[in-house]
């Protein structure tokens, strides 16, 4: 029981971070970006490259793990580099594709274009990195027993998994502070509400759009690195998470950051708890079930505003 909860929180962390980026781009750019999953994959792979580079430059090719974790500080540096590079990739895609379509196309044009961008990005990634799984570290981690087996089935968790949950909390809190305490954050919320009024009020909407891509893609990259840290890095990583990302964003009420976070954890937990009930092979279908249930019961999501 507790174990399922912990597993769900780890998966939920990755989904939550990806869904926040999705919900941000949806609310400000006004289209559902099906390329968001690919930013997770690119983030994970760019971190592999960055890690190799950082380790080669500083450690003589060896990464010394910090304390109980499976990785060294080099991975944190690599994650920051990967986030920056993924943000750059998002800006490039926007410049090449979405910016041109935004000027004249309807939202559906952008959605379909994002499908195309996702395919292009995934295939480019496979071309560059191949299809074999990658890992940040080959260290074997021993899970710590936090709760004995006779209490609710017990709980074992690796330090890496705990860190993923903790860092997700920190990142979400940081984003919350950005959105509520800074001029950029208020400008982003204002642009999401009413872009024309935002311009009249002095908001440089083009700059806000750039900031949105940067933040959304950077969060996706962090989510990708987390996914790779607690699992494998594969070219399909982001694509397989795309449906849970949408389920989480819609569940929380599309456009709501806290909704996306909560939605991410609910989808993660639902997936985790579905394993003993339906079997592991139906795990991915749970996101569908949650999505359908939410759309039937609460079409605007948990925190969504009525249209």
């Amino acid at each position: 029981m507790l174990q399922l909860l912990a597993d769900g929180l780890v998966v939920g962390s990755v989904i939550a971070l990806g869904a926040v980026g999705l919900t941000l781009t949806y609310s400000i750019l006004r289209f559902a970006n099906f390329g968001q999953g690919e930013f997770l994959t690119w983030g994970a792979y760019l971190a592999v490259t960055a890690l190799g580079f950082v380790v080669a430059v500083t450690g003589g090719g060896v990464m010394q793990p910090i304390g109980p974790f499976s990785f060294g500080w080099e991975l944190l540096v690599a994650m920051v580099i990967a986030a920056a590079l993924t943000a750059g990739l998002a800006l490039l895609v926007d410049w090449l594709l979405f910016q041109r379509l935004r000027a004249r196309g309807a939202a559906i044009t952008l959605v379909i274009a994002s499908f195309g961008a996702a395919l292009a990005l995934r295939n480019l990634l496979q071309f560059l990195y191949g299809t074999l799984p990658e890992y940040y570290t080959r260290e074997i981690q021993i899970a710590i027993r936090l709760v004995p087996r006779d209490v609710l089935g017990g709980l074992r968790i690796t330090p890496d998994q705990l860190l993923v949950i903790g860092m997700t909390g920190a990142v979400v809190l940081g984003l919350h502070l950005l959105l509520t305490r800074t001029t950029l954050g208020r400008a982003m919320r204002a642009t999401a509400m009413n872009p024309a009024l935002a311009r009249v009020a002095g908001v440089d909407v083009a700059a806000v759009i750039r900031a949105t891509w940067i933040i959304g893609a950077a969060l996706a990259a962090v989510a990708g690195v987390f996914a790779g840290l607690v699992g494998q890095i594969r070219p399909g990583l982001g694509f397989e998470l795309l449906l849970p990302l949408f389920a989480a964003a819609i569940l929380g009420g599309i456009g709501s950051v806290w909704g996306a976070v909560l939605g991410g954890f609910i989808v993660g937990l639902a997936e985790s708890f579905s394993v003993p009930i339906f079997g592991a092979e139906y795990r991915a279908a749970t996101a569908f079930l949650v999505l359908i249930a939410i759309l039937l019961l609460r079409p605007n999501g948990l925190f969504g505003e009525k249209p």
Binding site: R189, L197, A201
Partner: peptide
């Protein structure tokens, strides 16, 4: 119309 940011 819509001359304020309703979500702020």
């Amino acid at each position: 119309t819509e001359n304020i940011f309703a979500n702020l």
